[in-house]
């Protein structure tokens, strides 16, 4: 056990894991976090807390993660390389750990150009793969970057990275995942999967490299709420590919039935994803739809969540 978190135990016990996602509010409003946590609690094994996603200022991921712990929901706190140099990163990992966070996801982070602070100075002191290596060094060697002196406490951390099967260069995407595993990733959560054919190809390349045996891979699933959302994501969000078949289905139903169609598609995708060799769980990104997450997970046959010791 790297951290002994519920999430890690579920995976280690061989259960098909389910993680969720919680976007902190664009304010200091604790009630929003509590409410969203309430929807997710009991339906998932752990919840990812996004770190100023799309570069829009939100409540700190570590603070929201700590609130989730108080609510009895285990967090995976996300850390991007966009806003912190290596001093702040290591300091925040210490802080998050002290607050009881056991799972961490290391990301590059969306560029500031997307958000509401476009003229800020981007940091990117180190990259997401270097962040994984840094976190592993803190945990396994109890050493800061470039420092040989050990600190004298134990740091438990289950370290994750993102995988993207749907970006160019396709040929390099599994090889880049190998670099994350090499750096120390214990688990990987992928970008939202809609294109099963390409996802299966990517997983084949991942298996050929033996990566599915070196880290736990969870496939990203994001329910489409409307045809407009699908069209927007396909056109604008890098790393998202929505096949024509799914677009047609979203367009073929009346607006008020689109959400239900999106959920149906998600459930079918989860069913197909479970058949892919080497996949150990799903990461459900019900963005601003946390209240529907439980229903999706239940209809996918993934409730109740396992109790592990």
């Amino acid at each position: 056990m790297k951290a002994g978190s519920n999430f890690e135990k579920v995976l280690a016990a061989g259960h098909f894991a389910v993680t969720g996602e919680l976007g902190p509010p664009q304010s200091n409003n604790i009630e929003v976090v509590k409410k969203k946590a309430g929807f997710l609690k009991g339906n998932i094994d752990a919840v990812n807390i996004t770190d100023n996603q799309t570069s829009i200022v939100k409540m700190s991921s570590i603070a929201a993660a700590a609130i989730c712990i108080q609510q009895g929901l285990e967090p995976v706190f996300q850390m991007t390389c966009r806003d912190r140099n290596r001093i702040a990163m290591q300091s925040d990992i210490f802080g998050a750990s002290a607050l009881g966070c056991l799972n961490m996801l290391c990301l590059s982070g969306d560029h500031p150009n997307f958000g509401n602070q476009k003229t800020s100075k981007k940091v990117f002191d180190i990259d997401s793969i270097q962040l994984i290596a840094l976190a592993k060094r803190l945990r396994d060697e109890r050493k800061l970057l470039d420092q040989e002196k050990q600190f004298n406490s134990e740091l438990k951390l289950f370290i994750g990275g993102a995988g993207n099967p749907f970006s160019r260069p396709f040929e390099f995407r599994a090889l880049r995942l190998a670099k994350k595993v090499m750096a120390g990733a214990d688990f990987v959560q992928t970008q939202c999967v809609y294109d099963m054919e390409r996802f299966r190809d990517w997983m084949k390349a991942v298996r050929d490299l033996g990566l599915h045996e070196k880290c736990y891979i969870l496939a990203g699933v994001a329910p489409l709420r409307s045809a407009d959302m699908a069209a927007y994501m396909a056109a604008n969000v890098p790393g998202i590919v929505i096949p024509d078949g799914i677009m047609k289905r979203m367009n073929s139903v009346p607006k008020d039935k689109a959400g239900e169609e999106g959920i149906k598609i998600s459930i079918e995708l989860i069913e197909e994803i479970r058949q892919v060799e080497g996949i150990k769980g799903i990461h459900l990104m019900a963005i601003e739809w946390e209240h529907r997450a439980g229903e999706i997970i239940e209809r996918a046959g993934l409730l109740p969540r396992p109790k592990v010791e």
Binding site: S128, R168, G239
Partner: peptide, 27 residues
């Protein structure tokens, strides 16, 4: 655009290999 040393990040566009911040900028 993120000055990373172990790229590419997940932001490379599927269709044309452009950077996530601008379709005119190649990744």
């Amino acid at each position: 655009s993120k000055s990373i040393l172990n790229g590419p990040c997940g932001g490379t566009h599927f269709s044309d290999g452009s950077c996530e911040i601008d379709r005119e900028i190649p990744c």
